[in-house]
Nucleic acid binder design. Structure first.
Length: 461
RNA sequence: GAGGAUGUAGCUCAGCAGGUUAGAGCAUCAGAUUGUGGUUCUGAGGGUCGUGGGUUCGAGCCCCAUCUUCCUCCCCA
């Protein structure tokens, strides 16, 4: 009686038919673009070995990985290996009672896949992958513990043509989804590394990128404060202050970067790469108001090494809806170095929320019955089903109300299902070989012979 | 991982210094109309007030715990 209401776990959601209709609209749009650019589908398991995932996402990331308890009596198994469980805190205990974990993103499992199957892959290997990932993060608006990523990656080709194509994909997909005013931000990890080197803080690259990334959120002062707390000296802070000034005031930051990084070989390489990407896009007629170089863009994932990109709708209140970048040595972690990868990822759930807020989905009505038959009893419904089967064999969506209940109730149902036409075959229609057809939008109703009905549809009766 | 709010009918929300049988709108179901929807009218069902404890003569309201959702930090899609 006073049973607790059932519910899905925190941060995880059910998707009803209407939501699925919209979600599939997003997924199929993304899938269509990926395939158009020559990417092939891939799926990997929901779980990976814990060791495959740990250490790939930084310290914070490790904490957010959902670990799965070993099957069976895992405590007994651990004790039998001579492990004194009372000696460990829960963090240390994990590796003795959990060997598997839920997938945290799609890139690392993909890297694992590439290393495992490299002998049978043809490079450059282009795959796309649309699957859920899980993070033990604190749920908030637009942040879930289970959400979908839609990734496309190219592995085995260092060419910047891939970067260009991925940006084209970002643009083409978001345009197809009608996302208004989205902007692609572009940067290069080599530039960030160059900046760290120029100010003499190469060892603090991660701290620098994390702080810079927050510029548009917390402002100059706070960023400087954070950097200062992280041990950056006054010279470095002054140089970074200039840099942030330039980033927020100049339309084209490239001249500034060129002079800032002129003495740094790696930084200049990064500039070269960005130049190539931007110039190529320009000569392809890419609209330059939807892309801009943002030297404060960092992106959290540690493994990026070259171009990085991120898509946002400015002032929408939503975080980034897509992003990506180049990672030179991801497969190196799995013992296969020298394979360069580059990819993009759409955050389908954020796209969904954004599109809901902006009312960008097509109406949910198309997918129902075209012809819906009312049920007047057993003889009548049998005749209806014969006609229905004929219509279905011509790919026409149709159906019948399964129970012979009040017509008013059946009509209400048809109305709610947004059917286009209601067909009635009662005793009169059976004896006359006719059919009543009602247009549910106009309310217009007519009775014609059944053979005329098939003729109108271009079918033989 | 840290801090702060929230939770009343299927949904959106009322409610009172803690005081008898907890309300509204929408939705649902039934009837007006026993072969016709989206409008109208009438009526009905549905809540041990998130859950578990505690304080009190008495708790939807106060206290504690727990879960959900939301917000900030952290981090991210």
């Amino acid at each position: 009686m006073s049973q607790q209401k059932p519910s899905a776990p925190r941060g995880m959601r059910d998707f009803g038919p209407e939501e699925m209709f919209r979600r599939n609209y997003i997924f199929s749009t993304i899938r269509k673009t990926f395939e158009k650019y020559g990417f092939l589908p891939l799926e990997t398991p929901a779980m990976e070995k814990l060791e495959t995932l740990t250490g790939k996402y930084g310290e914070e990331g490790d904490r957010l990985i959902f670990k799965v308890l070993n099957s069976g009596d895992f405590l007994k198994a651990a004790r039998e290996k001579g492990i004194d469980l009372s000696q460990y805190n829960s963090l240390q205990l994990v590796k003795h009672i959990s060997e598997r974990a839920m997938r945290y993103d799609l890139t690392v499992p993909f890297a694992r896949y590439v290393v495992q199957y490299h002998h049978q892959l043809t490079f450059p290997f282009k795959r796309y992958q649309i699957q859920p990932v899980w993070r033990a993060d604190n749920p908030q608006k637009g942040r879930y513990r289970e959400f979908y990523q839609c990734d496309a990656d190219v592995v085995g080709s260092p060419s910047l043509i891939n970067e260009v194509e991925l940006i084209l994909i970002l643009h083409e997909t978001l345009t197809a989804l009608d996302i208004p005013g989205f902007k692609i931000y572009l940067n290069n990890r080599k530039i960030l590394a160059g900046m760290a080197s120029v100010i003499g803080a190469s060892d603090k690259l991660t701290a620098l990128t994390i702080a810079l990334d927050k510029l548009d959120k917390i402002g100059h002062e706070k960023v400087l404060e954070e950097l200062s707390n992280n041990g950056f000296d006054n010279n470095a802070l002054a140089a970074l202050n200039d840099l942030m000034q330039a980033a927020s005031t100049q339309n084209d930051v490239m001249p500034f970067l060129r002079s800032f990084l002129q003495a740094d070989e790696l930084g200049m390489k990064g500039i070269e790469e960005i130049d190539f990407v931007i110039n190529t896009l320009n000569s392809l007629g890419f609209p330059d108001d939807c892309i801009s170089v943002d030297m404060t863009l960092a992106r959290g994932l540690d493994y990026y090494t070259g171009c990085i990109m991120e898509v946002k709708v400015p002032d929408s209140g939503y975080g980034s809806i897509a992003g990506g970048g180049r990672y030179d040595d991801l497969t190196g972690i799995f013992g296969m170095s020298g394979l360069s990868g580059v990819g993009v990822s759409f955050g389908a759930d954020r796209l969904y929320d954004l599109m809901m807020a902006l009312n960008l989905f097509p109406p949910f009505a198309e997918n129902r019955y075209t012809y819906f038959f009312l049920n007047f009893g057993s003889d009548e419904s049998l005749r209806c089903m014969q006609m229905i089967q004929k219509l279905r064999s011509h790919q026409i969506k149709c159906g019948i109300y399964p129970d012979s209940v009040k017509i008013k109730k059946q009509m209400e149902y048809a109305d709610k299902m947004h059917v286009s036409f209601v067909c009635t075959i009662g005793s009169d229609e059976i004896s006359n070989q006719t059919i009543g057809i009602k247009n549910m939008q106009t309310g217009e109703q007519r009775t014609i012979t059944q053979s005329a009905f098939f003729n109108e549809l271009g079918l033989l009766s």
